[in-house]
C-alpha cells in the first residue's frame, strides 16, 4: 500500500507538474473534507446536529441523500430481520 501511494504521488506530481509535497497537501485536504462530511452527517443522523446546521456544513444535496439512504437502510434491516 505504501509503495502504491508513493507511485501514485510520483505519477500525479509528474503529470500535473507539481512538487510531491503539493500533491500530499491536496490529498490531505480532500481526505479531510470527506472525513468532515462523514462526521457532520453522523452527528445529524444521530440527532446531535440540527438539519439546517448540517445543510450549512455539507450542503442540502448530501443531507437529503443521507436521509433517503437512512430510510432505505432502516426499511431493509427491519425487513431482513423479520422476513
Amino acid at each position: 500500500m505504501a509503495a502504491e501511494i508513493s507511485d501514485r504521488v510520483r505519477a500525479i506530481a509528474k503529470a500535473r507538474d507539481l512538487p510531491e509535497s503539493e500533491v500530499f497537501e491536496r490529498a490531505l485536504e480532500r481526505g479531510l473534507e470527506e472525513l468532515w462530511e462523514d462526521l457532520v452527517l453522523a452527528q445529524y443522523l444521530d440527532g446531535e446536529l440540527d438539519r439546517e446546521d448540517a445543510i450549512e456544513h455539507v450542503g442540502r444535496t448530501k443531507v437529503e441523500r443521507a436521509e433517503r439512504e437512512r430510510a432505505a437502510v432502516e426499511e431493509d434491516v427491519d425487513w431482513g430481520l423479520n422476513a
Partner: peptide, 13 residues
C-alpha cells in the same frame, strides 16, 4: 452509501 447510515443499520441489528 454514507458511512453514518451504515452505522445506523449495524446498530439496528
Amino acid at each position: 452509501v454514507t458511512e453514518a447510515v451504515v452505522e445506523r443499520g449495524i446498530r439496528m441489528l
